[in-house]
Design a binder for these strands. Structure first.
Lengths: 243, 243
DNA sequence: GGACTATAATTGGTTGAACCATTGAAATCA
DNA sequence: TGATTTCAATGGTTCAACCAATTATAGTCC
């Protein structure tokens, strides 16, 4: 219990040492967004490893979302603008593997979505509001055109925009991840029209205009709870069909 | 706006095709946790690529948290028990890079922590409660012994245990990620005694015993808000010092 | 017989040299 | 000037080795 708690010694592989060094430079700002690393051949020399080993290091940083590798004469390894792509991909993997189930997804969406709506009310800029209004208008157009797939995409985008308006990157990334999982879910159960979403969006916009956080939170919560019932029922249905 | 929206054609790299195939097998359960893939040499043959290319694919799956590579005669690539390591690492990277700032971290902790406490009350098992009680006892012992570093670790563990009691893997992983970021934060500003944490823990345990979700949520929220003020003040202090 | 020990086989880790494919800029030509 | 060609740099891929860790196995000693 209170023992010294030794950590496994874990013989570090060469590529790990390299990623660690590069991460270090990132942390202390000696490498920053947009910078270009030397070429693979050059870096391999500097680190004193073969090009193959160096490539494994770059590959792992690419997967982690820290680098972007471009081909060609002016190509190379560039420090990426920090999006949470790796986080989104990671949660998406867990969903696909069944470690996260639809009921977990819907529950998390309710929790996060409600707070996002509340915060967005308090922190939204005029530009945020404008983007959200445009999104709802687009959704309406797609709805009228009967393009369910497109409407779904626009709906995901709404949540993403709202999260950005909340001005907290943790919530932004998490929302994007939840939407990505929802995308998988919806693709599996099929697109279905949700007649209560559009009216809810309009009430939400009204709350955002008036910066009424409580109203926005309430509206979002009730909408997501209806969506939850809708989605989980749909899921049970397709599950039975599969049998 | 409503144009056909072409997607970039993106010449797929060989290793991406491989990871995609393996992910596919994972999704449709033809590969499951604990399974061992054939050896690298064998896989390279099957995919018709060189061993180096195959290794980049395995490496990227390893970084994504899907595989674990073991050396030796009985080694190989094993399908990992799905933990959210990649997600934790990804958010951790974003924090280190400054894309997530301490105020975002503390805010997210309040939002998530409060809901986790509420859900944990409703869903905790007797075993969960026991583990949490043991954790608090340990924290008290470390506190008396004056071991701040160890006490901090035990405190992170408390949140992790509580999240597991809430029985939603999204919240579990997110909590782990938030704690990892907190760990970085605390290491940067230095360990400081928080006299109000231990009493709060006891009140929280009482709420958990009685399954009083509202009381637990309230207690957690107020504790985390105090911690937020404490942490952000500490952060400003060390920031000034750095100048 | 049973515990220890050398040995061999298997696996991931690493190396180095070579060639391909893409990209963009410099050189060339009309 | 402007379009075209050429060329050099870069990441992507291949091949053929060898190293290092790990474990099953056969052998050895008591």
């Amino acid at each position: 219990m209170s023992s010294p708690a030794f950590r496994p010694v874990a013989t570090r592989r060469a590529f790990e040492e390299i990623t660690s060094q590069i991460r270090g430079h990132l942390a202390r700002q000696s490498l920053k967004t947009g910078d270009r690393l030397p070429s693979e051949r050059n870096l391999a020399d500097q680190f004193g490893v073969s090009r193959n080993t160096l490539r494994e290091a770059l590959r792992s940083l690419e997967i982690a979302g820290l680098l972007e590798l471009k081909k060609g004469a002016t190509g190379g390894a560039f420090i990426r603008e920090g999006g949470g792509d790796a986080v989104v991909a990671g949660l998406s993997d867990l969903y696909r593997l069944g470690n996260i189930r639809p009921e977990h997804l819907t529950e998390a969406r309710i929790l996060i979505g409600t707070e996002v709506a509340r915060l967005a009310c308090a922190r939204r800029t005029a530009a945020d509001l404008k983007a959200l209004e445009a999104n709802v208008a687009e959704a309406e157009a797609a709805s009228k055109a009967g393009d369910l797939g497109r409407r779904a995409e626009i709906h995901y985008e709404f949540h993403s925009l709202l999260a950005r308006a909340a001005k907290n990157p943790v919530l932004t990334i998490l929302t994007d991840a939840l939407m990505e999982m929802t995308r998988h879910f919806v693709e599996a159960v099929g697109y279905q029209p949700n007649p209560y979403v559009m009216p809810s969006r309009k009430r939400l916009l009204a709350a955002l205009r008036g910066k009424d956080g409580e109203a926005a939170a309430k509206e979002m919560a009730s909408m997501l709870k209806r969506l939850q019932r809708f989605h989980l029922a749909l899921y049970e249905e397709t599950r039975e069909k599969r049998k």
